[in-house]
Design a protein around this nucleic acid. Structure first.
Ligand code: MN
Ligand code: MN
Ligand code: ZN
Ligand code: ZN
Lengths: 137, 137
DNA sequence: TACAAATTTGTAATCGTTACAAAGTAGTAT
DNA sequence: ATACTACTTTGTAACGATTACAAATTTGTA
């Protein structure tokens, strides 16, 4: 909890209760949730929480570099509390999103064919380990 | 024109006028357009064209493997007539999407950490060659 | 020509997201 | 304490992309 407040202050974000809870959720649940999933999860313990606040907060966090917004598939935005660079795998069966640790040459800050790269995303899609095992049964 | 009809028949898609025009557009314009861009472009010469038809057609084409749907950024779906594997660069200034020919190890059909990969997308974002030159002026 | 199947069309509905203005909160000066 | 200000949150309405749906049209075939 103390840690979260420090993180926000370092980024010049006032640590309101809503902001703390949202960042705490993203630190605890590494499921790459959508804005709506975060809202649904927090609505129980914060009955007055507004979905607009979730959207506003996620936007602020992303702009200040606290979170990373992911455009994977099915055009919905997903959020994660960012650490080291990694790539993503989304399962077409269960919808789960996995972090894949496979190393890749990140082109961030490099110049590719004359273009200056600022973000580099690698998105895989297929059938996850879990769902493959189920089919075998 | 003849070519397009053959492509559709090979994929068991009846070559209606609408489908021919839409595929023709995607063959001629490598701009990775959205459904709406395609609709706007064709509406002039096909006044009765319905946007629903564009969406239906793009869905059919994607399911049958004629086109590839791209989820880049800003959660909007873009379409391209697919050839060799390549990666994409989207400019934050002008919004243009570039094909980048840089080789990369495509993981399609491979097994990564137990997951079976079916699609592999690499998305770059930054400032394109064109926009970089403009800033220098 | 008749009929069934496929395709297209227009409209309404849905979903994720954003705009906006009112209400609430917190810090500061008086 | 009070008043003022800036910031944050909230609820509602609006928006844009996409989908659902059923009627109308076209197509292929008997
Ligand atoms: Mn991740
Ligand atoms: Mn391309
Ligand atoms: Zn799965
Ligand atoms: Zn540009």
């Amino acid at each position: 909890m103390k840690n979260i407040i420090e993180i926000l202050k370092e980024k010049d974000i006032a640590p309101s209760m809503q902001r703390i809870k949202i960042l705490e959720y993203l630190q605890n649940y590494k499921t790459h949730p959508t804005a709506d999933m975060i809202y649904q999860a927090l609505a129980d313990e914060m009955p007055t929480l507004s979905k607009t606040t979730v959207y506003n907060t996620l936007k602020t966090f992303t702009e200040k570099g606290v979170l990373v917004a992911l455009s994977l598939f099915e055009n919905e935005v997903r959020y994660e509390y960012t650490k080291e660079p990694h790539i993503h795998f989304k399962c077409t069966k269960c919808g789960r999103i996995y972090d894949v640790l496979k190393t890749f040459k990140c082109l961030k800050n490099e110049n590719i064919e004359g273009h200056q790269v600022i973000e580099h995303h690698v998105n895989l899609r297929g059938i996850c380990k879990n769902c493959l095992e189920k089919v075998e049964d």
